[in-house]
């Protein structure tokens, strides 16, 4: 009986810990007033330097300027250092060009976060395949 109680207590602790952790919280629901879109080039992605273009518009499809776009690229294999990129300000038509280096071929997970000048933000995630050759 004591063993059962101990086991139950341990499981309870684990559940409390799990529910407390931040990354367990779901990704924030995208703000319907912010349209963040990635405009990938037609050619396949290859290892090396690249420029990732994002479009940022409001609900009325008007370009948003002055925002900050942050990109984090994680490889889908453990043990790889993530790659970061960012762009600030944007062009008149709401485009943001983020310099970014694909450091290795394979599958990448891009997490893109846009923070508007008024502090609102939105986040999107993309899966990308990059060719080594």
């Amino acid at each position: 009986m004591t063993h059962l109680l101990r086991a139950a207590l341990l499981i309870l602790c684990a559940l409390i810990l799990a529910s407390c952790r931040q990354s367990a919280q779901p990704m924030p629901t995208p703000d319907p007033d912010i349209q963040l879109e990635w405009l990938p080039a037609d050619k396949p992605f290859r290892v090396g330097l690249d420029a990732l273009i994002f479009s940022l518009k409001n609900a009325r499809s008007e370009p948003i300027r002055g925002a900050l776009i942050e990109v984090r690229g994680d490889m889908n294999h453990a043990g790889m250092v993530p790659v970061n990129g960012m762009a600030e300000g944007g062009t008149d038509d709401g485009r943001y060009v983020v310099p970014f280096e694909w450091t290795m071929g394979g599958d990448w997970i891009l997490t893109v976060r846009a923070t508007l000048p008024d502090g609102r933000s939105t986040q999107r995630r993309y899966e990308v395949q990059v060719r080594a050759q």
């Binding site: 990354s23 994680d74 889908n76 453990a78």
Partner: peptide
Amino acid sequence: TYDGFTGEQIASRNLATVGAWV
């Protein structure tokens, strides 16, 4: 195991995948 079940499901950011496969 705990992180694998409850953590962020990105291999390079999770103890399960980094610990086991690296």
